[in-house]
C-alpha cells in the first residue's frame, strides 16, 4: 500500500482541566482514507482527545499537526478549514436554525476544492431530513438530530470525520442506519475516527483501533489483530 498523506497527528499530547490531567502524552495518527476506532472506558480521555485535535481544548504539552502543519491549540475554525469535521457527543445541532439552515450554514468546498457533498446528496443519504427541512432543530428525534449532525459535517466536504458517540442513546434500528452511513462515508474515501461503545461495530468498520486507558495509549494496531486477541479488548474495555 503506498504511503498516504498524514491528515492528523498528535505527538505527546497532554491535556488537563484545572488540577486534573486527562491526557498523558498521547501519540495518534490518522492517514487519508483510514478508519480508526478510538476506544476506552468512560472518562479515559476519548472526547478530550477529539477536542484537543479540533483546538477546542488547549493542550498543555505536546503537538497537534494537521496535514503536516503545526496546529497545536490553533483556532478551531482553522482546523475545520483544513478538512476536519467534528460530530460531537450530544450532537450540537443549532436548535434556533431549521434543518435546512443547519446544513446550508456549514456548506463549504473541501481543501482541494472538492464539492462531493451537496445539500442534495446529504438529503439523499438521509431521506428523513428531507422530510423535515423546515422543522426547527429542536423538533427532531434523537436519531434525526444525529443524522443532521453527520449531514452537517459532510456539508463541509471533509477529508476526516471525527465521530464521538454517534449511536449513543439511539434505537437499534436507527443505530444500524447510522452504522450503514459510516460505512458509506468510509467507502467514499473520507477518513474517520470513531468513538463508540459498540466494540464489535467499531471493530468491524475500522482498519485500526486505538485503546486509551487513563489518558494513555495502551493499544494501537490493526482492527483484525484486536479481533484475534480478544483478551486485549477484555482487559481494557471489559468486552
Amino acid at each position: 500500500m503506498p504511503e498516504r498523506e498524514t491528515l492528523l497527528e498528535a505527538r505527546g499530547l497532554e491535556v488537563g482541566y484545572g488540577a486534573s490531567r486527562v491526557l498523558h502524552g498521547v501519540d495518534f495518527t490518522v492517514r487519508a482514507g483510514e478508519a480508526v476506532g478510538l476506544m476506552g472506558r468512560n472518562g479515559m480521555g476519548k472526547t478530550t482527545l477529539l477536542k484537543g485535535f479540533m483546538g477546542i481544548v488547549r493542550p498543555r504539552g505536546g503537538q497537534v499537526r494537521v496535514r503536516g502543519r503545526e496546529a497545536t491549540g490553533g483556532a478551531p475554525y482553522r482546523v475545520a478549514r483544513q478538512g476536519i469535521a467534528w460530530v460531537p457527543e450530544g450532537r450540537g445541532i443549532f436548535p434556533n436554525l431549521s434543518v435546512r439552515e443547519n446544513l446550508v450554514m456549514a456548506a463549504r468546498p473541501g481543501v482541494h476544492g472538492r464539492r462531493d457533498w451537496t445539500l442534495e446528496r446529504v438529503l439523499h443519504a438521509f431521506p428523513r431530513l428531507a422530510e423535515r427541512l423546515s422543522h426547527g432543530g429542536q423538533q427532531l428525534s434523537g436519531g434525526e438530530q444525529q443524522m443532521l449532525t453527520i449531514g452537517r459535517a459532510l456539508m463541509t466536504n471533509p477529508d476526516l470525520l471525527l465521530l464521538d458517540e454517534a449511536t449513543e442513546g439511539l434505537a437499534p434500528l436507527v443505530a444500524r442506519h447510522i452504522w450503514r452511513m459510516v460505512e458509506e462515508i468510509r467507502a467514499s474515501g473520507i477518513a474517520t475516527v470513531i468513538v463508540d461503545k459498540n466494540f464489535a461495530a467499531v471493530n468491524s468498520v475500522t482498519d485500526r483501533c486505538v485503546i486509551l486507558v487513563k489518558g494513555r495509549v495502551v493499544f494501537d494496531g490493526a482492527s483484525a489483530q484486536l479481533r484475534e486477541a480478544p483478551e486485549v479488548a477484555h482487559a481494557h474495555l471489559g468486552v
Binding site: 477546542i56 475554525y77 475545520a80 478549514r81 469535521a85 467534528w86 443549532f94 459535517a153 463541509t156
Partner: peptide, 12 residues
Amino acid sequence: SNREMAEALGIP
C-alpha cells in the same frame, strides 16, 4: 446558539 460548534464548522 453554540459558539464552539459554529467555530468547529469553520466559521471564524
